[in-house]
């Protein structure tokens, strides 16, 4: 009786009899890759670490009192005066909380990740928009990247690239790049068919159609994608600190681990302030008032109008 029940048990639950050895396949593949292709993956590190170190050097080498006005002016030009003031105040607060260096490290880490997202993501997005076959391949990969829990690919990345900032950037890339690709594709597809037709009808090459018409008209949507990419990248800072990426995320991780709630809170506050700041900046760029050209707004507009007035005044007094 018992044995027959055991037989039925086995029959009704075939999973006990056999399971696919996928686990060992993946392990073997990863080990094989690590074993044979390590130099290749180390070579991939190079451009990332070059950019990363460069940006970090700039942010850390310039003293805060000089960097602050530069950031202020750039943000003013890009996103307007109010957001510039907010950014400056936020950075000053972070400075007095004693986390200036961590903030700059996080900022440069983010900057690198986002830069590579742009360099890789926008061309892929454009390719998807113009070719349905590429799109059909890329879309499921993006779905996969967005649904896969982070920790699953954190381990193979560490095995292939080691620990440190570069694997951190690569892990961030995987999380942050999908929205940019998707929204670039969407933005370009949304450009009125008739407008594209008009560009072709007047003899534009594909490249000219892209640069003269499609990208400028898709810019708003692309920037919305960039905004989401930056937010996704920021959300990665704490996780990236697990593979030894220094910065505000590291403070949160260490603080939590050692029950130093104060340290964790300051780290968290820093990330939050950066997030708000970058979100506002990118949103402002995306929704910018395109009626006013860049020469007429921000600090450049301010200076140019002064110069013009002065010229007008001098010609007036001269005559």
């Amino acid at each position: 009786m018992a044995s027959s029940l055991g037989g039925a048990d086995k029959l009704l639950n075939p999973f006990k009899i056999y399971s696919l050895p996928v686990e060992s396949w993946i392990n073997h593949t990863i080990f094989f890759l690590v074993d044979r292709l390590r130099p290749f993956f180390q070579a991939i590190r190079f451009p990332f670490s070059l950019v990363l170190d460069g940006i970090e050097w700039v942010f850390l080498a310039i003293p805060p009192l000089i960097l602050l006005p530069i950031i202020g002016l750039v943000v003013w030009q890009l996103a307007g005066r109010r957001i510039a003031i907010f950014s400056i105040v936020a950075l000053i607060v972070l400075g007095f909380l004693g986390v200036w260096q961590e903030t700059m490290m996080t900022l440069s880490f983010m900057g690198t990740a986002v830069l590579f997202c742009i360099l890789i993501g926008i061309p892929i997005g454009i390719a998807c928009a113009s070719n349905y076959r590429i799109d059909r391949v890329v879309q499921p990969i993006l779905d996969f990247m967005q649904t896969l829990p982070l920790f699953i690919y954190l381990v193979p990345i560490v095995m292939l690239f080691g620990i440190g900032k570069v694997p951190g950037v690569i892990a961030t890339l995987i999380v942050a790049i999908p929205p940019l690709i998707r929204l670039t594709t969407l933005g370009i597809r949304q450009v009125s068919k008739e407008v594209v037709e008009a560009a072709i009808a007047f003899g534009s090459t594909k490249r000219q159609v892209l640069w003269e018409v499609q990208i400028p008209l898709a810019m708003r949507t692309i920037l919305a994608g960039l905004n989401q990419t930056i937010m996704a990248a920021l959300s990665m800072t704490v996780i990236a600190s697990m593979i030894a990426v220094e910065g505000l995320g590291m403070m949160v991780l260490r603080g939590t681990a050692s029950l130093n709630i104060g340290q964790a809170s300051i780290g968290g506050l820093g990330i939050a302030l950066l997030a708000i700041m970058l979100d506002r900046i990118t949103q402002a760029i995306g929704q910018g008032n395109h009626q006013v050209s860049w020469q007429e707004r921000g600090p450049i507009g301010f200076i140019l109008s002064k110069v013009k007035n002065k010229k007008a005044a001098s010609t007036y007094s001269g005559s």
Binding site: S192, E194, V195, E197, A198, A201, V213
Partner: peptide, 14 residues
């Protein structure tokens, strides 16, 4: 040689 005028104008809005 050939130019075109469109139903919904097809102007470049930017």
């Amino acid at each position: 040689k050939v130019s075109m005028v469109f139903q919904h104008f097809g102007l470049f809005p930017h």
